[in-house]
C-alpha cells in the first residue's frame, strides 16, 4: 500500500513528501490528483443512491413501509428518461431523504433501509 506522510524538519523547497512503495520510502512530490483522490467506500446495500443525476418524480414508499425486493421505490427522471428505482432487498424503510421534485446528484443518498 502507498502511504504518505510529511517528512519532518524538511524546510527545503520544493516540499518533498514520502511515498511508500514495496516497503521502500521514496522522497518525492505528490500530484494534485494523487492528493485529492477519494478513499474507497464499500457499497452498502441498505443505502439506495442516485445512479444518475436528475429529479425525483414519484415516491411510492413512506418511512417504515415494508417492501419486497423488486418493488418500485421511486421514479428518477434523468436525461429525459423516467427511471424506476426498484428495491434491491426485502426490508423496512428507515428513512427517506428526498421528496417529489428533489434534484439529486449522482451517488446522492435517496433512502435507507433498516
Amino acid at each position: 500500500m502507498a502511504q504518505t506522510n510529511e517528512l519532518k524538519n524538511d524546510t527545503k523547497k520544493p516540499s518533498y513528501k514520502s511515498l511508500l512503495i514495496e516497503n521502500i520510502k521514496y522522497r518525492t512530490l505528490l500530484t494534485k490528483k494523487f492528493q485529492e483522490k477519494k478513499p474507497f467506500v464499500r457499497k452498502d446495500i441498505k443505502k439506495v443512491t442516485a445512479i444518475i443525476p436528475g429529479t425525483i418524480l414519484n415516491l411510492y414508499v413512506k418511512k417504515n413501509n415494508r417492501v419486497k425486493e423488486g418493488d418500485k421505490l421511486l421514479v428518477l427522471e434523468a436525461m429525459k428518461m423516467r427511471n424506476d428505482l426498484a428495491s434491491p432487498i426485502d426490508g423496512i424503510i428507515k428513512d427517506i431523504y428526498v421528496k417529489d421534485g428533489s434534484k439529486v446528484t449522482k451517488g446522492e443518498l435517496l433512502l435507507e433501509f433498516k
Binding site: P14, L19, I21, Y26, T28, L29, L30, T31, K33, F34
Partner: peptide
C-alpha cells in the same frame, strides 16, 4: 523521480 517517485500509473 521528483514526482510520485516516478511511478507508472493510469495517467
Amino acid at each position: 523521480p521528483m514526482v510520485l517517485a516516478g511511478v507508472l500509473d493510469v495517467d
